[in-house]
Simulated scan of single mutants.
Amino acid sequence: MTATKPSNIEKHSWLEDALAIFWGTVFVSLGLVLYQHAMLLTGSSAGIALLIQYATGYAFGPIFFIINLPFWYLAVKRMGWPFTIRTFLAVAFFSLLSRIVPGLVDFSSLNPVYAAIVGGGLMGTGLLILFRHRAGLGGFNVLALYLQDNHGIRAGYFSLAVDLTILAVSFFVVDWRQVLLSVIGAAALNMTVAINHRPGRYVGMS
């Protein structure tokens, strides 16, 4: 017996998509704050932006926004304008939050292992919310979603491979112990996405 697809899939409303962009980026930005306080790294465009921030002292938000610019062509051509617009809004809002949230949260003590695991989980949950509403945070997330939709490659597993490559470069920027914790965080992030964002498991559409 073969599984049948639902005949009438209800699309997300514009309000549901807006709330998803808001909460998805809020979750990711909070996870990012944990990483910044513990001097940890992540992958994708955010990982590159963090590497540049740690190495140069420049603000994360503008770096992250600029890094994403080359990926907009792929987003429009392969994923369509609705996805691109939602992703652009998510990237812009996340870039803004990356400047605001650090001023709203303060830690007198933060265990780096906790920061790696919980920060990774928060970012993975935020990305999951965005993915399920046909949005992302640009960069390699766009490529990951394209490969999953068109070639059946799990977005989470592809992102994990990319993230580990970026983390390998980080040995030249931060201490090896922070890199090791960052790998644990990357696993927490990407397994959250891989387990919960599987083709056919969630049928909501935007």
Rank of each mutant, 00 (worst) to 15 (best):
residue 1 M to F: 01
residue 1 M to G: 12
residue 1 M to K: 05
residue 2 T to F: 03
residue 6 P to A: 05
residue 6 P to L: 09
residue 6 P to T: 06
residue 7 S to K: 02
residue 8 N to T: 12
residue 8 N to Y: 09
residue 9 I to Q: 01
residue 10 E to K: 10
residue 11 K to P: 08
residue 12 H to W: 08
residue 15 L to S: 13
residue 17 D to A: 07
residue 18 A to V: 13
residue 19 L to C: 01
residue 19 L to R: 00
residue 19 L to Q: 06
residue 23 W to A: 09
residue 23 W to P: 11
residue 29 S to A: 10
residue 29 S to L: 03
residue 30 L to C: 13
residue 30 L to M: 11
residue 34 L to E: 02
residue 35 Y to A: 10
residue 35 Y to L: 08
residue 38 A to K: 09
residue 38 A to M: 02
residue 39 M to A: 11
residue 40 L to M: 00
residue 41 L to M: 14
residue 41 L to V: 12
residue 41 L to N: 05
residue 42 T to C: 11
residue 44 S to L: 03
residue 44 S to A: 10
residue 45 S to G: 10
residue 47 G to Y: 09
residue 50 L to Q: 15
residue 51 L to H: 02
residue 52 I to N: 10
residue 53 Q to T: 15
residue 55 A to N: 14
residue 56 T to E: 07
residue 56 T to K: 10
residue 57 G to V: 14
residue 57 G to F: 15
residue 58 Y to G: 14
residue 58 Y to E: 13
residue 59 A to C: 08
residue 62 P to D: 09
residue 62 P to R: 06
residue 62 P to F: 01
residue 65 F to Q: 04
residue 65 F to C: 08
residue 69 L to M: 15
residue 72 W to A: 13
residue 73 Y to S: 13
residue 74 L to P: 03
residue 75 A to E: 03
residue 77 K to P: 04
residue 81 W to D: 05
residue 85 I to K: 07
residue 86 R to C: 13
residue 88 F to I: 08
residue 92 A to E: 01
residue 94 F to S: 15
residue 95 S to Y: 00
residue 96 L to V: 15
residue 96 L to Y: 08
residue 97 L to C: 06
residue 97 L to Y: 12
residue 102 P to T: 14
residue 106 D to T: 15
residue 106 D to I: 00
residue 107 F to R: 07
residue 111 N to A: 01
residue 113 V to I: 14
residue 118 V to K: 06
residue 125 T to F: 05
residue 126 G to R: 02
residue 132 R to L: 04
residue 134 R to C: 06
residue 136 G to E: 03
residue 140 F to K: 00
residue 141 N to Q: 09
residue 144 A to F: 11
residue 144 A to S: 15
residue 145 L to N: 07
residue 148 Q to K: 14
residue 150 N to I: 07
residue 152 G to R: 06
residue 153 I to K: 12
residue 154 R to N: 13
residue 156 G to D: 10
residue 157 Y to A: 05
residue 157 Y to M: 10
residue 161 A to D: 08
residue 163 D to L: 04
residue 163 D to M: 02
residue 163 D to F: 05
residue 163 D to G: 07
residue 164 L to Y: 08
residue 164 L to G: 11
residue 165 T to N: 05
residue 167 L to D: 13
residue 167 L to H: 09
residue 168 A to H: 02
residue 168 A to I: 14
residue 170 S to D: 06
residue 173 V to W: 09
residue 174 V to G: 10
residue 174 V to K: 12
residue 174 V to N: 10
residue 175 D to T: 11
residue 178 Q to D: 07
residue 178 Q to H: 14
residue 181 L to Y: 01
residue 183 V to T: 14
residue 183 V to Y: 11
residue 189 L to K: 04
residue 190 N to Q: 01
residue 191 M to V: 09
residue 192 T to A: 00
residue 194 A to V: 03
residue 195 I to V: 13
residue 196 N to V: 01
residue 196 N to W: 05
residue 196 N to P: 07
residue 197 H to S: 02
residue 200 G to T: 03
residue 201 R to A: 03
residue 204 G to F: 09
residue 204 G to C: 01
residue 204 G to W: 01
residue 205 M to N: 02
residue 206 S to Y: 04
